[in-house]
Simulated assay, not measured.
Amino acid sequence: MLFQRDSGLQLQVRSTIAALRQLAVPGLEIELVDTNRQRLDRYDVLHVFSAINGNVRVVELAHELGVPVVLSALLAPGWSRSAGWRAGVAEQLTGRLTRWNVQTSYAQTKRALQLAQLVIAADEAEQDALIDGFKVAPARIHLLPNGVAERFFAADAQAFRRHTGLDGPFVLMAGSIAPYKHQQDLTRMLATPELPVVLLGHARRQHQAYLQGLVAAPNVRWLGQLAHQDPLLASAYAAASVLVLPSQGEAFPLPVLEALATGTPVVMADDSPLHLPGSGFALKQLRWSDTDALRLAIQALVATPPPRAAVSALVQDFAWRRAALKIADCYQLLYQRRQHGAGHAV
């Protein structure tokens, strides 16, 4: 089901493959595995994206076959030591009540993380979640942030302005359109003739009424979903006065990094693991339910925009080439261990 939808996870998989291929590292061949047609033991190293959604079965089989696994955890925020303890208690109770015929998602996620030889965390918050919530040994965790395509660092705002006719300041909300994204209250409070709100994203069938409620507000424009490769997307980020992401529970929101790369400041919910030192002048992380604080932060950034070059500099280390080089190093490390007969030792 992975590619039956198109969102951040699918984008990360495709972008990782493309960036690794562009490196042209001698001897490194990258291929997207079709688990219905191809055996896992034909590969030297397997990279699995996400520790949830049944991926534990892929990791288990690779373990049985002796194929080392790099696992990008992609955990939801909020996994603390206490949360891990509660989930462990729930797993024990579930097992005993069902004679161990039923597993919780926590148990499956934890097993996938335990069997992988190397676990990738996107930032320090996710690294802490792995250690505290799932008891992953720190030595097995590599801190590797997601990548941002080079085109976002060189984005030109004029293409989007010509396309939409928007000449003045505006607020951009990019991503899925759904109630859990909490766009409605904020758009009603923000949208004025002086500060329109532009929505980019797809609304699924069950959320069409929610979308109609959004666009019914004055000065709210919905432009549908732009393909990630569409130059207009990067231009939209560059043209916006501020990107707003008020949704609860964003794991590691790529639109935030992409907007910052174009020089556009961001206001988002504070329960994301994203942490950029020294970014307070351009990245405001506030409680998702505090619409007044979100509104005031947005208006302040619109009134006094930070220097675009300084904003872009916050994410220079996230350029895809740098990320791909570090990922390739992870593959090489596990390949060498396997060649030297280290097996599953870490």
Results as ranks from 00 to 15, higher is better:
Gln108Trp: 14
Ala155Glu: 06
Thr109Met: 10
Phe170Pro: 10
His207Lys: 10
Gly168His: 07
Leu214Thr: 09
Gln108Arg: 14
Ala174Pro: 00
Leu113Pro: 00
Ala191Thr: 08
Tyr180Thr: 15
Asp185Phe: 15
Thr192Ala: 01
Ala121Leu: 05
Thr187Pro: 07
Gln208Pro: 02
Leu223Lys: 07
Asn219Phe: 13
Arg111Pro: 00
Leu166Cys: 01
Leu226Val: 03
Ala122His: 14
Gly133Arg: 11
Gln183Thr: 08
Glu150Gly: 05
Gly168Asn: 07
Pro169Ala: 05
Leu172Glu: 10
Ala174Asp: 01
Leu166Ile: 12
Ala129Leu: 04
Pro196Ile: 12
Gln108Tyr: 11
Leu172Pro: 12
Asp167Gln: 13
Leu118Asn: 04
Gln127Trp: 11
Ala139Ser: 05
Asn219Met: 02
Glu126Pro: 07
Glu126Trp: 13
Arg188Gln: 12
His207Arg: 11
Arg205Asp: 11
Arg221Ala: 01
Ala129Met: 09
Glu194Ala: 14
Ala159Arg: 07
Ala178Gly: 03
Gln229His: 09
Phe152Lys: 00
Ala139His: 09
Thr187Val: 08
Asp167Tyr: 11
Arg111Asn: 06
Asp230Ala: 05
Asn219Asp: 07
Ile120Arg: 00
Glu150Asp: 10
Leu195Phe: 15
Ala121Val: 12
Asp185Ala: 13
His202Asp: 03
Val148Glu: 00
Ala137His: 08
Asp230Thr: 01
Tyr180Ala: 03
Ala122Glu: 04
Val220Asn: 08
Leu226Ile: 01
His182Ser: 10
Thr109Arg: 15
Ile177Tyr: 15
Thr192Pro: 12
Leu113His: 13
Gln114Arg: 10
Thr164Ile: 04
Ala116Trp: 13
Tyr180Cys: 02
Gln117Thr: 05
Arg162His: 09
Ala125His: 11
Ala157Tyr: 03
Glu150Tyr: 09
Pro193Thr: 08
Ala178Leu: 06
Ala216Tyr: 06
Arg188Ala: 14
Ala155Pro: 10
Gly165Asp: 04
Leu113Gly: 02
Ala139Pro: 00
Pro231Val: 03
Val119Asp: 00
Ile120Asn: 00
Asp185His: 15
Glu194Lys: 13
Asp128Lys: 10
Thr109Tyr: 12
His228Cys: 00
Ala122Lys: 12
Gln206Arg: 15
Leu223Phe: 11
Leu199Gly: 04
Gly201Asn: 03
Ala112Asp: 05
Asn146Phe: 14
Ser176Lys: 09
Ala209Tyr: 15
Gln208Cys: 01
Ala157Gly: 00
Leu144Val: 05
Asp230Met: 02
Asp132Val: 01
Ala116Asn: 03
Asn146Cys: 08
Pro179Ala: 06
Leu190Arg: 15
Val197Ala: 04
Pro179Thr: 11
Thr187Cys: 14
